[in-house]
């Protein structure tokens, strides 16, 4: 089904593009039957490695940070809840591109000022930025998911002697995770797409490679069309994976 969808969407995209720009297409740049075209395609496709690595690492980090940020939101003490609000409001307000510049160019300076000498390469710069930026949203998703678990669950956990932490761990979170899987998947897709920004700090992922090829081949239309299709394939695979996961986790529970 996934393969068919891709084929259908890509042919639709190509057809509209072709009819709108009749006569100006030059598919030879990515024609796999020619040597040059095949080399170009391989060059572009190798960007999947970095895009996938950056996205997966950033998503995992974002989920961990998001959970750690969300949990204090349920503290009884108002002062424990405050850091949660500050983090979410502050991080959420920073646009991704400026944050990327700040992490890549600014963070090493700050660290040096603190006596820690590190250099951040484009790969880790992208991972850190995407993880931080996304974690504010993940934290809110966790908070909403946890709040959606009925109060009676926490009360029942309390009456069988579980501490608040244990109730969270064994009763509330397992139920919350099931509820937040779809929005988390959304965020993952968002991360994959936003990883394209890593190209501006020199990361050779999908978008950067497309840009570099455009500079040498002067065929933006064809190359960017392929680029879009590359992201489409990636996102459709993620969607299929998430649906599989949802089915598996939902088994045996009808509520």
């Amino acid at each position: 089904m996934t393969f068919r969808t891709i084929a259908l969407l890509s042919s639709l995209l190509l057809l509209t593009a072709c009819s709108a720009t009749s006569g100006t297409w030059g598919w030879y740049v990515i024609d796999p039957t020619t040597d040059n075209g095949w080399t170009n395609i391989r060059f572009l496709i190798r960007g999947f490695t970095s895009t996938i690595q950056i996205s997966v690492l950033a998503a995992v980090a974002s989920i961990i940070i998001g959970l750690l940020v969300a949990l204090p939101a349920f503290a009884q003490n108002r002062w424990l809840r405050l850091p949660n609000r500050i983090y979410v409001e502050f991080i959420r307000a920073i646009p991704l591109l400026p944050m990327l510049f700040w992490v890549f160019y600014g963070l090493p300076v700050v660290m040096r000022g603190m006596g820690i000498s590190i250099s951040i390469d484009p790969f880790w710069g992208a991972v850190i930025t995407l993880a931080l930026s996304d974690s504010a949203f993940t934290a809110e998703i966790f908070r909403a998911g946890i709040q959606a678990v009925p109060r009676g669950q926490a009360e029942a956990a309390q009456t069988i002697g579980l501490s608040r932490a244990k109730a969270m761990r064994y009763v509330i979170l397992p139920q919350a995770v099931r509820r937040i899987l779809p929005p988390l998947a959304n965020q993952f897709i968002y991360i994959v797409k936003m990883s394209a920004f890593a190209s501006v700090i020199g990361m050779q992922e999908l978008t950067r490679r497309a840009n570099e090829l455009v500079v040498t081949e002067y065929r933006p239309l064809e190359i960017y069309t392929l680029l879009i299709l590359e992201y489409l394939v990636l996102v459709l695979i993620i969607s299929a994976g998430v649906r599989w996961l949802e089915r598996r986790m939902g088994a045996g529970e009808s509520r």
Binding site: P150, Q153, E155, A156, I160, P174, Q175, R178, E253
Partner: peptide, 15 residues
């Protein structure tokens, strides 16, 4: 757990 409680809405753990 010294004081057991049974709720109107059961509150069993569905997962």
């Amino acid at each position: 757990g010294d004081i057991g409680m049974v709720f109107q809405s059961f509150n069993l753990f569905p997962h």
